[in-house]
């Protein structure tokens, strides 16, 4: 076991990890931040997406030791400081961008990464960027609508097919 230190949601944290401890396990089991979900554990589904130094990564496919010293943002860091839902989270609620909600943490984190790179994405941009996030409930239409709404674009004409 070795000690790793990193910044998670703006807070300095540390913990004892094995070499094989995945970032997802460190967040969930080490820090109790269970908002990051582990869906497939094979880097396909994207439920575990977090930001490492501002970049979206699949936390089930990164060793905690390999990101020692990094700044990590999880879904718990996406709410406003007063505890209300952040802009992306609120858009997912407003536009029913979730059903069971299991994939939602990863969807929100990928969306935030997309909007940081591309503040006004087209529908095609959104669908392409979210390729690595799988949802088995919604058929994606409302997720795409929520992402477009979170970018400040008018989605009143977008049908919820």
């Amino acid at each position: 076991m070795t000690k790793v230190t990193m910044t998670v949601n703006g807070r300095a944290v540390s913990g004892e990890v094995e070499g094989r401890t995945l970032l997802s396990a460190f967040l969930r089991e080490g820090l109790g931040l269970t908002g990051t979900h582990v869906g497939c554990d094979t880097s396909q589904c994207g439920a575990c997406v977090v930001h490492v130094d501002g970049k979206a990564v699949k936390s089930c496919t990164v060793f905690a030791s390999d990101v020692a010293g990094a700044s990590v943002t999880t879904i718990e860091g996406m709410a406003n400081p007063d505890g209300t839902l952040g802009r992306v989270q609120q858009a997912f609620q407003d536009h029913h961008g979730l059903q069971c909600g299991f994939c939602t943490p990863g969807m929100v984190m990928s969306t935030a990464a997309l909007l940081a790179e591309n503040p006004k994405p087209t529908e095609a941009d959104v669908r392409h960027y979210l390729e690595g996030n799988i949802c088995r409930c919604t058929g994606y239409h409302n997720i795409v609508k929520a992402v477009l709404a979170a970018s400040g674009q008018d989605v009143s004409g977008v049908a919820a097919e």
Partner: peptide
């Protein structure tokens, strides 16, 4: 290649 999160690693 892959998806955005894969490309970041």
């Amino acid at each position: 290649i892959g998806d955005p999160a894969v490309r970041n690693r």
